[in-house]
Write a protein that binds this DNA or RNA. Structure first.
Length: 667
DNA sequence: GACTAACGTTTTTTT
DNA sequence: AACGTTAGTC
């Protein structure tokens, strides 16, 4: 089949990338240089060269990226070929591997995957149980240390701090007892199996002879180790990324994977995509002038294909109120131009806390806006509860989901009983579910509690049998179960508003519908649970599905582009963030600003304030030290007053009298 | 076991 | 300022 791309439509560097199919290849793809297009063309080219599609593996970091890539490839090659390729995240690849071979590590193949909140729950318990030290340690701190350790490919039992190390050991034992793994374990265990079992390794290396890794700057040390196990001679591996856009170092990403790629894969072909199709020359020049202040990078100089354009503006603001007002007014005015939509405008900020005043200013002017990444679907209580019930139907021995819904809705099995059951299960080296089923245990309880437990056990066991023995549709069973226990009525009782009630109801329904859809596609309950555990949870939150101007953190903005970008809060302590200065990661903050600047297609406005309300307290601000690093050739330094002009607008008078009144009131 | 009051915390976020 | 957590009360 002839693929639907032509070499003529690519620039020289892109063409070289597409043509270089053999051996290790590293594509350094600067912002806006047609990375995805190049990668998908390269894969289409593989098919042209008669490489069997089922040997092609493309690994991404997020589900969203995987879906996008699958779609882009699907538009370029035959349906059949596209369906035979594997395009997935690191984690889902590892789940597939482990579902087949985790028994080599002593786990059962029906292991469950702990979510973040599951992890916190387990660690909280351990801290209570092992809380020998009086110092207050947060579960997140310990889990963070464990995660960092695993992401480096090390055993958390060797953590420096003895207390942390003992907690790590207890945590791992707890997971093992529950036949559960956390997100990091998926990678860790998969790597271990590939490393220790040559037969499995060979199967995988023959299965996938062509491996592509996207967003390579976001990979951590463990993922690199995994990749090395996955790819054997003759190392047909292609990594794509941009070290200048590496902004996830704080969660383990290793820029070294790009910077020292030669150390991991010998003699790679290195291709630089430097032709930028997104931004004006002014924007790109400003971005380049900033990023060159970073030491130790793979040097790239992005060239714009778009000459001219408006200068970048840097506006000094009196305070964050004025900043928000200014931006809202600018959006309002900009949008009135012919052909402009609200979606053309984006406001980028360092921390979520900075969005509040912006939201208020937009709302006042009835400007529709969309916020990215507020509350995630899978963190919603009703969603987690219903999923917990679904988990029990697959594997009741999983303690975390069991304890979660043991008394939700209230059925007379309270905290004290839960503790007794947990203790008993630990003493007898069994799961909590087994304890609840054990007459010897229930005999130790009062008659009322015993009755409650017996009906709970009957409820879950009955539902499970309807799936396992009677072969009923799991979605029907789950729906029946949730209805029977009047879960919805229970959760609605706790709602304060009608809106909340409706949202919770929808959440319940969405889980059941989603399960039904999975079953309809022929997938098993277990697969549904895996997908849910690994879901990027923002499907619902998809930018495209919402309308309005975009309010977004710099981190979340990576990969996006907007005609008009406002970048707020260029103040020392915010950007670079004060914590980065303490931790010596100012380079990453510089990259963060670089990412922000390169989001702009046509026009970029950056602002900084003299004062800002922080944690309910007004604090003075200094301009960011990054401002001095920006080249002035295409950069206009202005102030709020300059732009408003000499004539006092009614707004100004209002605020003038407002201030005056405030001063008088203070006397 | 549910409710209230005081308290502490507050970068970024995916799997 | 606003949120979640925890301790204390009924």
């Amino acid at each position: 089949m002839a693929s639907s791309f032509s070499f003529e439509s690519l620039n020289n560097a892109q063409r070289q990338a597409v043509a270089s199919l053999d051996g290790p290849v590293m594509i350094l793809a600067g912002a806006g240089t047609g990375k995805t297009r190049t990668v998908t063309c390269r894969i289409a080219h593989m098919l042209e060269k008669r490489i069997p599609p089922d040997q092609i593996l493309a690994v991404t970091f997020t589900n969203k990226a995987a879906n996008e890539m699958r779609e882009r490839i699907g538009g370029m090659v035959s349906k059949k070929a596209a369906s035979e390729m594997t395009v997935c995240t690191f984690h889902s690849l590892c789940v597939r591997l482990l579902r087949g071979g985790i028994d080599k590590l002593g786990y059962k193949k029906n292991f469950s995957i702990c979510s973040h909140s599951d992890q916190v729950g387990i660690m909280k318990q351990l801290l209570v149980r092992k809380g020998g030290t009086d110092e207050k340690v947060k579960p997140e701190t310990v889990l963070g240390a464990i995660s960092n350790c695993k992401n480096k490919g090390q055993d958390p039992a060797n953590l420096e701090d003895d207390y942390f190390a003992s907690l790590a050991v207890a945590y791992q034992n707890e997971l093992r007892a529950q036949n559960a793994v956390d997100f990091d374990d998926l990678l860790l265990f998969a790597e271990q199996i590939l490393r220790e079992h040559a037969d499995v390794r060979e199967v995988f290396r023959q299965r996938f002879t062509r491996v592509t890794v996207d967003e390579f700057q976001d990979t951590n040390a463990l993922q690199m180790q995994l990749l090395q196990q996955l790819v054997g001679p003759p190392y047909h591996v292609c990594v794509v990324g941009d070290d200048d856009q590496s902004i996830y170092g704080w969660r383990g990403a290793e820029v070294a994977n790009i910077l020292e790629f030669e150390r991991f894969f010998d003699n790679p072909t290195i291709i630089r995509l430097e032709e930028n199709y997104r931004s004006t020359h002014a924007v790109l020049h400003t971005a380049n002038s900033l990023i060159k202040h970073n030491a130790g990078r793979r040097e790239k100089v992005l060239r714009s294909t778009r000459r001219g354009g408006d200068n970048v503006r840097l506006v000094a603001m009196p305070g964050d109120d004025e900043e928000a007002e200014f931006i809202a007014e600018e959006i309002l005015a900009g949008r009135s131009a012919v052909g402009r939509t609200w979606e053309d405008f984006a406001v980028l900020f360092r921390t979520n806390g900075q969005s509040r005043k912006l939201e208020l200013a937009l709302r006042e002017r009835k400007i529709p806006y969309r916020m990215v990444g507020a509350q995630s679907f899978y963190d919603r209580r009703e969603v987690r509860d219903v999923l917990a019930y679904a988990q029990l139907l697959a594997a009741p021995d999983a303690d975390v989901p069991l304890l979660r819904i043991l008394n939700a809705p209230n059925r007379g099995i309270g905290q004290s009983t839960a503790v007794l059951a947990t203790d008993w299960s630990r003493e007898h080296h069994e799961s909590v579910w087994q304890a609840l089923c054990d007459p010897n245990f229930t005999a130790t309880l009062g008659a009322k509690t015993r009755g409650a437990i017996e009906s709970f056990v009957a409820l879950i066991a009955g539902a499970k049998n309807r799936i396992d023995l009677a072969g009923e549709n799991p979605a029907d069973v789950l729906h029946g179960l949730v209805t029977e226990i009047e879960y919805r009525e229970w959760i609605e009782r706790g709602c304060k508003t009608e809106n909340e009630k409706q949202q919770r109801g929808e959440g319940i329904q969405m889980v059941i519908d989603s399960l039904r859809a999975h079953v309809a596609k022929g997938k098993k309950l277990q697969t549904f649970l895996d997908d849910s555990a690994l879901a990027s949870d923002r499907e619902d939150d998809d930018l495209e599905k919402k309308q309005g101007a975009t309010l977004i953190t710099l981190h979340a903005s990576k990969g996006l582009e907007f005609p008009f970008v406002f970048l707020v809060g260029l103040e020392e302590g915010f950007l670079p963030h004060s914590r980065s200065i303490v931790e010596g990661t100012k380079d990453e903050e510089r990259r963060l600003l670089y990412v922000g600047i390169t989001r702009a297609q046509d026009q970029l406005t950056m602002t900084y304030c003299t004062k800002r309300v922080k944690w309910g307290q007004e604090t003075g601000c200094q301009p960011s030290s990054f401002i001095g690093e920006l080249d002035d050739e295409y950069l206009d330094h202005t102030t709020y007053d300059d732009i408003l002009g000499a004539e006092a607008s009614p707004d100004d008078l209002d605020s003038f009298f407002g201030n005056l009144k405030g001063m008088l009131d203070g006397i």
